[in-house]
Amino acid sequence: MTQQTLDQYRVFGNPIAHSRSPDIHHIFAHESQQNINYQKQLVDIDGFANAVTDFIKQNGKGANVTVPFKEQALALSDELTERARLAGAVNTLSFVDGKIKGDNTDGEGLVQDLLRNNVKLKNSRILLLGAGGAAKGVILPLLAQQPQSITVANRTFSKAEQLCLQFADPRVTACGFSISADNTFDLIINATSASLSGQLPPIPAQLITPSVVCYDMVYGKTLTPFLVWAKQQGANQVIDGLGMLVGQAAVSFSIWRGVTPAVEPVISALRHALEVEA
């Protein structure tokens, strides 16, 4: 079977060279005996809609979307899932019966990674750091796990407050980073981009106790600055975002192929690749 006769998938982005999505999906396909060809495609900043249209004409079946096109993908979709609508962004497109269907699998990828790491979400008290797109995309899937509360902390309080109002759920509340150290949480999720620039979200160190699970959506060759700091404050369990990356890809794959792939082999392979690169 040639590459041309395989079902075609893409990831669109700019930049895109660093994307590990083709590796991830080809391992999924091999493990689950699915015949697909998945490639990454660099798209001009003003060329996203044309790239999608061209790919559909080439009989493309679906695509992932990364920065900076997730909002454009939302606008381009004929149908949206509830989680994509509330996230305000689309990272997974399916082309079915002449329609573009938009979904957002980031939040479900996070939830599945937390559960895989035996993090208890039901009745938990969650502190979500940041009120940007990354935070927005995970609130609905987290709420589905029936936590006691989700507190959204952001440098600009009004932005956190605005985000919470979109969900109209009494369990979701807002605060600034100067959150009182008297608060207790079971899980702290860093959804800011601080770790990418070696920064820390300015939250009180007293919030970190041995029982608090600390999760960073960012991952790298070594622990992120936030997770290093959390460990220094005494956190027993810290988790980076590599499993979320693989988890969101697994949800996309299951949407397209009707098969839920195993994530463990892929996480292990990527972790090994990162260590070799270090």
Rank of each mutant, 00 (worst) to 15 (best):
V119Y: 12
G88V: 01
Q72D: 13
T66W: 10
A89L: 03
V43S: 08
P68N: 04
K61M: 13
F55S: 08
G62M: 06
S32V: 12
L86F: 15
D54K: 12
I56P: 02
H26C: 05
F28V: 09
T53V: 06
F55Q: 08
R125H: 14
V67S: 10
I27K: 11
N50Y: 08
G102R: 12
A134D: 09
Y38G: 06
N35W: 03
R83L: 06
K57E: 04
L127I: 03
N50P: 01
G62R: 01
V52M: 02
K70L: 03
T81D: 14
I100A: 07
Q58V: 02
L80P: 01
L76C: 09
G60D: 08
F95P: 03
D103S: 14
V43R: 03
V67A: 10
A134G: 15
G107W: 06
K120E: 15
D46F: 11
D103C: 02
Q58L: 10
N117E: 07
L76F: 11
K70S: 03
N64L: 04
R83P: 00
D106R: 05
S77I: 12
D113C: 01
G107Q: 07
L121Q: 14
I27H: 08
K122G: 02
F69L: 11
I36F: 11
H26D: 11
R116F: 03
A51I: 11
D54S: 13
T92E: 09
Q72V: 01
K61W: 05
I126K: 05
V43N: 04
L80G: 04
T81S: 15
L76W: 09
T81L: 14
F95K: 09
N50V: 07
G60S: 12
V111Y: 01
G132C: 06
L129C: 04
A51V: 13
K57I: 06
F48Q: 07
T105C: 13
Q112L: 11
I100R: 10
G132A: 04
T66C: 05
Q41R: 07
N118V: 03
E31V: 06
A63P: 05
A49N: 15
N59G: 04
V65G: 00
Q112P: 00
H30L: 07
A63M: 09
Q33F: 04
K122L: 01
